[in-house]
């Protein structure tokens, strides 16, 4: 053993190193070729000049970008107050759907109906119906604010999805855990809170990360009922300037947030599958 180490690497290691180098060169070249093709060929298309002026207009971007960032703060705010409420309501619905006692049967039905309805209706419809409908009943200001009822619509829709993920997490905890806890004399409540939920929640963290990313994007749907968040602000610029570049600017801002978040969710998922295998 020490002999081969001293001589450098084994033949196998040398071979693997060569293979690795070779694939890096191939991957690099092909990526470069594709990039070159895009950079050279797209501008050769007859409509490129017009597309560039309408979608990738530097002057328009620098003019509108700071205001888009201002508007994005509203997205972040709505996200911040909605996300915890979604987590709480989602967990409650999941627990309701998992209630074991026969007396709790109405709760299970209610939970099932809730998830069926709010997962089945497009988010934008829920936003419209709740955002204009409930304030239309005659609530006084400020309780008829579209910020409140738009957020409620998001919370209802997303907690339906989140509840299903929590439920899958609860189901993923092996029944033997429950039996073991019972044999130790733990109560139903203790079993759920101290034994099952800690494991269930841990199991579903990567999936819930994806819901957070989706929520971050769907906050923009509130623009339909009035709040001037980034999507509406970009739309205002689009109309005034007859130019789509502000939308590209908005997309960039979203990507700055969502790409790292997506990578992190992927990392969590990879770590989890490694732990399990």
């Amino acid at each position: 053993m020490s002999d081969t180490k001293a001589a450098g690497m084994t033949r196998r290691e040398l071979f693997e190193q060569r293979q690795k180098r070779r694939s890096i060169v191939i991957a690099g070249t092909s990526t470069l070729l594709v990039l070159l093709a895009v950079v050279i060929l797209v501008p050769l298309t007859p409509g490129w000049e017009k597309v560039q002026k309408s979608f990738f207009n530097g002057a328009v971007l620098t003019k509108t970008f700071p205001k888009l960032i201002d508007a994005f703060q509203l997205n972040v705010l709505i996200f911040i107050w909605s996300a915890p409420l979604i987590a709480i309501l989602g967990l409650l619905v999941a627990l309701a759907r998992d209630a074991k006692s026969p007396a709790m049967f109405p709760l299970r039905i209610l939970g099932a109906a809730f998830t069926d309805v709010f997962r089945g209706v497009p988010v934008i419809l829920t936003v419209y119906l709740i955002g204009f409908g409930i304030p239309g009943l005659g609530l006084p200001r400020p309780w008829n604010s579209p910020y409140i009822w738009g957020s409620v619509a998001l919370i209802l829709t997303y907690s339906a999805y989140v509840a299903e993920i929590f439920r899958a997490g609860i189901d993923s905890v092996h029944p033997s855990q429950r039996s073991a806890a019972l044999s130790l004399g733990l109560s139903e409540r203790q079993i759920m809170w101290d034994v099952i939920l800690p494991q269930a929640v841990r199991n579903v963290v990567p999936s819930q990360m994806n819901m957070l990313i989706a929520l971050q994007k769907d906050v923009s749907l509130l623009s339909f009922i009035g709040p001037v968040e980034i999507f509406r602000q970009a739309g205002v610029f689009k109309s005034l300037l007859a130019n789509f570049t502000p939308y590209v600017g908005a997309a960039i801002i979203f990507l700055i947030i969502t790409v790292p978040a997506t990578r992190y969710a992927d990392y969590l998922l990879a770590r989890q599958s490694k732990e399990r295998s």
Binding site: F132, P135, G136, G138, L139, R141, N144, S145, P146, S223, F224, I225, G226, P227, V228, R232, V236
Partner: peptide
Amino acid sequence: SDPLLYADNADINAAIGANQI
């Protein structure tokens, strides 16, 4: 206070009806 902006006149109509603006 910050104005609310809508996609079309029908939505503005709904917002006035809901006393939001």
